[in-house]
Design a protein around this nucleic acid. Structure first.
Length: 958
RNA sequence: GCGGGAGUUGCCAAGCCUGGUCAAAGGCGCAGGGCUUAGGACCCUGUCUUUUAGGAGUUCGUGGGUUCAAAUCCCACUUCCCGCACCA
């Protein structure tokens, strides 16, 4: 058993004592790798571990390849969730406090302090940092910071002034989900039951009655041409309400909604729905009057509480009209009018006739307007008409347009003529804020936006997205789509931790906007932490100089009270480390952070400082299931380290899936990996450095294989295919070492420790980025100098690749395989094994066929003609089957192997196959006899010899 | 609906871009053997069907197509997963 924790402590101490991961500018080439910094509102769990571990492996790999790697870390305090948590602590929220206690193991005394938001952030900041240290991340901690540090605030102010000066920040109105009590926008985190406060935009069509306006909310403004009447609920008391300069009749609920939509709303009087029944209202844009009818399906909480009726296309309306014609309690004159109303068809849709609503109602056998099936049929008809329908001639200038187009155009048109307005409505209302208040949609009027719809900005970002490295490649199109789809984004809010908007201190810069160029800030952080830069002395000129090289360092030096030397070395350090060479993040940040990150670098920095690469990874499942609080399957990272050790966790996360796939973390895998590592460690103490004097074929083979594996692993690493790389390191070596030991064992060799030491040293070096702790231990056991972390990544030595040895061993393996196969099928116990090798003409023919196949010619007929034409190979006449089988042989091996065979002379099979003797003796206890196909004195009672082919010797077993 | 991704042999999961190395890596599980006082761990062997000669047959969501050759390329269908905003 290995004491993981003490191994981890031992090496971690060495790394940090000897400043392994502190990177400063030097003459070396640099590599700057960053990860999205954590939001410290909870301890990190296994899932968070994936992105950081990937980045760490990347950093360690590049370091071993000779780069001066900077891998820093900061903490993102900006945001509202922590604020919400603090408030819940103040309110003594049992559930949250219980979670702190049992799930996050926060000491009770500390929880009390959590009523202050910063205390929560500080606590989890330290907790997360400890976890990162324990995981062995090779972070330069001198550059740590938080986003509420005073210099960071100055930095963000600079960023925002910069964006504003480039006209990329604009002001406008914007609807948000809103809690009227907290006076704050609400997101999913802020609602009871974590409901997403989604909302829909409705168009209010203004019908006129007397001096009043009766607005109706609709998703289908284009159907204004088909309106035949209005529906009102006779039992609801409506409000006569002054809205801006007009007098509206709406439900009480609607009046309240309007208040938040930037309107001056004042209720003047009340009127019962029934009082409006039978009154006539004027349809806007159509000089016509229609009657108001009663309908029970109209709900006061939806829209305005009054509905326009389009019976031809809205099933509810059609059905309500049918119902009313049968109503017994309706006044006689209204009944006459109702019966005279005919649906006005305005949309032609394939598959439907004149009155689609009627058809669909009959099809689904709807009974009355309270039938629950009505919702479904409404949706179905709406989507059919929306995507497939065209407006008819009776819609004037909109005739022939598709419904999808017409909807927008009609909306624009009637808004322009002031015959319409906009109403926002929450989708799955009512939604309650955590404070208990019912949420509304609020139109924020003076909201600030980052103008991601700016054409030039978008275009530049597209170009760069297409040029930069993005891993995995599949995700690039998603980025492009996000760039297209992004429009103005609110970048400030009224509450939360963060930086105030420099020109409007009522606003705080929102967290996804203050985290887009902070990678540059890591350069400053080192100096800030050494107290060489003080916030109060800084202003925009300082940042202009350090990040953009603008302005006169002399002046800035005196302005900011920083020596010119220091100022210049900060500038140089920025120029040395920038741009970001690789940014790692989970795929959930593709549609937001990562795209903003590219946008903002493009806006602020010159092209040479734009990010080079983005690496995106999938999430982590727990035993095949999504991690969630409610499932109780979230394992805090530090707990896992304590029970399993950091390295096994790192490997278990990395080996279970390629980059974009969801990785499954399961204990089975952790155990398996732990065992694997422990075995490897044990192996390492067996081998000592040693010069093997006479390299035998299997030695040269193993060394060749090592070179090939190094090549494979290296190219996998470069593509961040860490799963594949790790797989080679952990498992691919085994089968080769096994074969080697078998070969050496059969020959009773004693001089193999040197070769194996060489193999293991390379293997351990390549394991080191993945499992840094145990690799150090192995490195030490192997008796190597220095540490694995500081060793160089193994390089491929072409000179050590021995094509002949590779071919020869393959021949031995496949021949042995054939012998086993025969024995398995025939179930005989061997007394005598005879192998026959090919005659020279077959070898010549083989070479010709090989050359031909490589060229792409593998037609059997052509090949046979070709061979017969040559005296040396005309023997194929007697054995045409040989050609087909040989072609198949050749096709069933790797392309490189074919080519290497074609390049080199064919190996001497008889000699090589004699090597098989020791193996066969060891395994089956009999000797092997090798004959040439046409050797006169050969033993060949079953006439097998003639079936032999190069690399596929004939075998006889008795 | 829009956009993105996926469906592989008991399970997980590679392979697909760059067609032939593919009956298809690896891990897990299962079976047999070794080791062990026993269990665990570890090591070896096997794990689609069939076969007393290294072979043959049928497989990679479904159906078509291209090709000498398709898990891999093209088309259609189908099922599943994720994102769709001011939220980290």
């Amino acid at each position: 058993m290995i004491d993981w924790s003490s191994i981890e402590g031992k090496w971690r101490k060495k790394w940090y004592d000897e400043k392994y991961f502190e990177a400063d500018p030097s003459s070396q080439k640099k590599f700057f790798v960053t990860v999205a910094y954590p939001y410290p509102n909870s301890p990190q769990h296994i899932g968070h571990g994936r992105t950081y571990t990937l980045a760490d492996v990347h950093a360690r790999f590049m370091r071993m390849r000779g780069y001066n790697v900077l891998f820093p870390m900061g903490f993102h305090y900006t945001g509202t969730p922590i604020l919400g948590m603090a408030r819940r602590v103040q309110e003594n929220d049992k559930e949250l406090i219980e979670a702190f206690k049992t799930l996050y193991k926060v000491p009770e005394g500390t929880i009390k302090e959590f009523s202050e938001p910063v205390k929560i952030a500080d606590y989890f900041h330290q907790e997360i940092k400890s976890g990162m240290l324990e995981m062995g991340y090779s972070i330069d901690w001198r550059r740590e910071f938080t986003t509420i540090d005073p210099v960071y605030n100055k930095f963000i102010e600079w960023q925002f002034r910069k964006l504003k000066s480039k006209n990329l920040i604009i002001q406008g109105s914007h609807p948000v989900g809103w809690c009227p009590k907290d006076q704050n926008p609400v997101s999913q985190h802020d609602t009871l039951g974590d409901v997403e406060p989604g909302f829909t935009e409705y168009v209010l069509i203004k019908f006129r009655y007397d001096k009043y306006i009766i607005p109706t909310a609709t998703l289908r403004p284009e159907t204004i041409f088909g309106v035949t009447n209005l529906w009102i609920n006779p039992d609801v008391r409506y409000k006569i309400t002054s809205v801006d300069n007009e007098t509206w009749i709406v439900s009480a609920e609607c009046a309240r909604k309007l208040e938040f939509l930037d309107k001056k709303v004042k209720v003047i009087n009340e009127i019962k729905g029934s009082e409006l029944v039978g009154k006539k209202a004027k349809v806007p844009e159509r000089n016509e009057e229609i009657v108001i009818f009663p309908a029970s399906f109209v709900k006061s909480e939806n829209g305005t509480g009054i509905v326009m009726s389009v019976p031809a296309h809205a099933p509810f309306d059609y059905q309500a009209l049918e119902d009313i014609k049968k109503a017994s309690n309706l006044e006689q004159n209204l009944l006459v009018i109702a019966k005279s109303i005919a649906p006005i068809s305005i949309i032609q849709t394939d598959g439907y006739g004149e009155i689609p609503a009627k058809e669909i109602i009959e099809k689904f056998q709807i009974e009355n307007q309270n039938d629950p099936k009505l919702d479904g049929v409404t949706k179905e008809l709406y989507s059919k008409e929306f995507y497939g329908g065209k407006l008819k001639q009776n819609t004037g200038k909109f005739a022939q347009k598709t419904v999808a187009d017409a909807k927008e155009e009609v909306k624009k048109w009637i808004l322009q003529t002031k015959n319409a307005d906009i109403l926002f409505e929450l989708n799955d209302g009512p939604i309650r804020c955590r404070c208990g208040a019912e949420c509304v949609v609020k139109l924020l009027n003076d909201q600030w936006f980052l103008d991601y719809s700016n054409k030039k900005w978008k275009d530049d970002t597209h170009l760069w997205i297409n040029e930069m490295k993005i891993l995995p490649e599949e995700i690039r199109s998603e980025f492009n789509h996000v760039v297209d789809w992004l429009r103005e984004r609110a970048c400030a809010r009224q509450h939360g931790l963060g930086t105030k908007l420099p020109w409007d201190k009522n606003w705080i810069i929102e967290s996804l906007s203050d985290s887009v160029i902070y990678m540059a800030y890591y350069i400053l952080a080192k100096y800030i932490n050494k107290k060489q830069i003080l916030a109060e002395n800084l202003d925009d000129e300082f940042f202009d100089y350090v990040f953009l090289g603008e302005r006169d360092p002399k002046k800035i030096s005196s302005l900011c009270k920083i020596s010119q030397d220091l100022l210049e070395s900060i500038r140089n350090e920025f120029q040395y480390f920038y741009p970001v060479n690789a940014r790692h993040s989970g795929r959930d940040l593709v549609p937001n952070h990562l795209t903003f990150f590219v946008f903002n670098h493009i806006a602020i920095f010159p092209k040479k400082h734009w990010p080079e690469e983005i690496v995106v990874n999938g999430s982590v499942l727990m035993e095949g299931k999504k991690m969630s609080k409610s499932m109780g399957n979230i394992i805090p990272l530090r707990d896992a380290i304590r029970t399993h050790g950091a390295d096994p966790i790192r490997l278990a996360i990395l080996i279970s899936a390629e980059l974009l796939q969801d990785a499954d973390f399961n204990l089975e895998a952790v155990r398996g990996i732990k065992n694997k590592l422990e075995n490897m460690l044990e192996e390492c103490s067996k081998y000592k450095p040693d010069q093997t004097k006479n390299l035998e074929q299997e030695d040269r083979w193993l060394q060749s294989r090592l070179q090939q594996i190094i090549l494979e692993i290296t190219s996998a690493m470069e593509k961040m295919r860490l799963r594949e790389a790790l797989h080679y390191v952990l498992y691919e070596f085994d089968s080769d070492i096994q074969w080697y030991l078998k070969r050496a064992g059969a020959k009773s060799r004693k001089d193999i420790t040197g070769i194996l030491h060489e193999i293991f040293s390379a293997r351990v070096a390549m394991l080191s980025p993945f499992a840094p702790y145990i690799a150090e231990e192995m490195w030490e056991k192997l008796g190597n100098v220095g540490t694995a972390s500081k060793s160089l990544w193994p390089s491929v030595l072409e000179s050590k690749i021995d094509a002949a040895a590779l071919q020869s061993e393959n021949l031995l393996k496949s021949t042995l395989e054939d012998i086993k196969n025969i024995l398995k099928i025939t179930k005989i116990s061997p007394k005598r094994i005879i192998i026959y090798t090919s005659d020279p003409w077959k070898i010549k023919a083989y070479q010709k066929i090989l050359a031909s196949v490589i060229k792409g010619e593998m037609n059997i007929g052509v090949l046979i003609k070709l061979l017969i034409a040559d005296k040396d190979t005309e023997n194929v006449k007697k054995d045409p089957d040989f050609v087909k089988k040989t072609v198949n042989d050749i096709l069933s091996e790797p392309v490189e192997s074919r080519e290497s065979k074609a390049r080199s002379d064919l190996v001497e099979e008889k000699k090589i196959l004699s090597e098989i003797d020791s193996l066969v003796q060891k395994e089956f206890g009999v000797r092997v006899e090798v004959f040439s196909e046409s050797e006169p004195q050969k033993y060949d009672p079953k006439n097998k010899a003639k079936t032999t082919r190069p690399f596929k010797p004939a075998i006889l077993i008795e």
